[in-house]
Amino acid sequence: MNNDWPLWEVFIRGKGGLSHRHAGSVHAADAKMALEHARDAYTRRMEGVSLWVVESARIVASDPAEAGPLFEPAEDKIYRHPTFYTIPANVKHI
């Protein structure tokens, strides 16, 4: 029976102000059931204040075979990290 239900990805917002983070997946027949299953499987221990579910098939993923051209060019662009500034001593909370 389980095989008949599509897979849904579950995202949880831990608390107000944080973004939703991927928590796992559930099987469910429709969106409403997916939310209920996500609630029952992933928020039993006060993990969150908001849930997103999205059908796994709807997620577009990058091709692992293209990881080279996609991600490796960033490796030697260390100037993109804001680490070359001298922070004045009286500036706090950075």
């Binding site: 029976m1 389980n2 239900w5 559930v26 099987h27 469910a28 209920e36 299953h37 029952d40 499987a41 039993r44």
Partner: peptide, 11 residues
């Protein structure tokens, strides 16, 4: 009938 339903009922 399914693992997810098992959890729902147990909750």
């Amino acid at each position: 009938p399914a693992l997810e339903v098992d959890l729902s009922l147990a909750n």
